[in-house]
């Protein structure tokens, strides 16, 4: 899976990520851990790779990282921010 590239613009500001979704004309933001995942999702990634990114960045247990990555992916999917080929 990876982030949708059409109609979505995003950049990091002070460790958070601000996202402009032109399809819904809304701004969204993530916290620091969300930014870690957003950076990874600029390329095609598996859930395991995203969880590994959280473990590496924050030293949290792998099972917690997996659960948190899955929850965040669900949020992105709900907002239609992932590439449609992944849905």
């Amino acid at each position: 899976m990876k982030l949708r590239t059409t109609g979505v613009s995003w950049r990091e500001i002070d460790g958070e990520t601000v996202i402009l979704d032109l399809s819904s004309s809304t701004y969204l933001k993530t916290n620091a851990a969300g930014s870690t995942i957003m950076r990874l999702l600029a390329e095609d990634r598996t859930t395991a790779e995203l969880a590994d990114g959280l473990v590496e960045a924050y030293g949290i247990p792998a099972d917690q990282a997996t659960a948190d990555a899955e929850t965040f992916i669900a949020m992105l999917r709900e907002r239609n921010l992932l590439d449609s080929a992944d849905s």
Binding site: V18, L20, S25, T26, Y27, L28, K29, T30, N31, A32, A33, G34, T36, I37, L54, A57, Y58, G59, I60, D68, A69, T71, F72, M75, L76, R79
Partner: peptide
């Protein structure tokens, strides 16, 4: 770095924030 689970939240609409920026 202290860890908080990833969050995604809406800040507002483009229109709302454009108006705010003027006192896209």
């Amino acid at each position: 770095m202290a860890y908080e689970a990833p969050t995604l939240e809406e800040i507002g609409s483009v229109r709302e924030l454009t108006l705010a920026a003027s006192g896209l």
